[in-house]
Design a protein around this nucleic acid. Structure first.
Lengths: 148, 148
DNA sequence: CTAACCCCTAAAGTATACTTCAGGGTCAAG
DNA sequence: CTTGACCCTGAAGTATACTTTAGGGGTTAG
């Protein structure tokens, strides 16, 4: 049985992060000892690493909570996990597409910029001031946050 | 002179957003009339559109505040603006690279997943449980947020 | 016994870009 | 004179993933 500091060290996270994960239902404590200290089994360390790896490939903590439920559910199928992965892949592709489009617009503008000259005749600022209609291919580049 | 509702309509934002932009120093009011209502010149509408266009190509409000300073500074050069654009392009390329890497890892894992089978023998969950060392190309996929 | 280091809780702060809320004036039409 | 649309302020809420703060107890080496 490990105390929180040991789990944190082995898992590569801070103790505050561990307590946070506990509040969020991502990691459970095995119990408490007499003085109220958390005791963890060493599966806790594996769990932390799972969480960190999942974050590294793009899952949010919310996603990860779902993955952990699937992992713990003997009735769940591997397909369910793959479904989550494929959904995440689609999200990433969408983000990549947005970024690529923004990058290409900016790159075009930067290319149109002379080496010198006052900001009063800057093609980038001009472009930002005026409509960008020739670019319209449908969707805006803005993320799907709730707009005005 | 326009009141806030009119500027919001023409600029395609909400009045709350306008007041927020004002607090953040992105838009100035021309003045107030007797009852305390804000009055705007129609350059305000152009300013709002500038802000929205800049957001669409990936600038944050902080970036945009800088761009607006450059725009207002007669001593600034067009190069300065292009510098900001190029920096933003580099940021986007970095984000794209991270996303591409995550996507490719996930895609490989998803491809390794059988059509059926219990989660107990899921290659994706297995991969998340164990180290992902064969992938190491240096940098982690995690964004540069302050880690544990 | 005391310093150093570990543990505990609850709450607030961070960053971004807004939105929502609470509470209250102003204005034009009918 | 009331109704509805508009305006005002200041503060808090949203989402994400933590970190930091404030305040206090436990444990171990010297």
């Amino acid at each position: 049985m490990l105390n929180i500091g040991e789990v944190a060290r082995r898992g590569g996270v801070s103790v505050e992060t561990l307590r946070y994960y506990e509040r969020e239902g991502l990691v459970e404590v095995a119990g408490r000892n007499a003085n109220g200290y958390r005791r963890y089994g060493d599966d806790a360390v594996r769990q932390i690493r799972f969480i960190k790896h999942a974050q590294e490939v793009g899952f949010t903590l919310k996603d990860i909570k779902e993955l952990l439920s699937l992992k713990a559910d003997p009735g769940a199928s591997c397909c369910d996990v793959r479904g989550r992965a494929e959904e995440k892949i689609r999200e990433m592709e969408a983000k990549i597409a947005v970024l690529e489009r923004m990058r290409s617009i900016l790159a075009d503008w930067a290319a149109a910029c002379p080496d010198t000259g006052p900001v009063s005749r800057c093609p980038i600022l001009d472009a930002l001031e005026n409509e960008m209609d020739e670019r319209r291919g449908g969707m805006s580049c803005l993320p799907p946050g709730r707009g005005a």
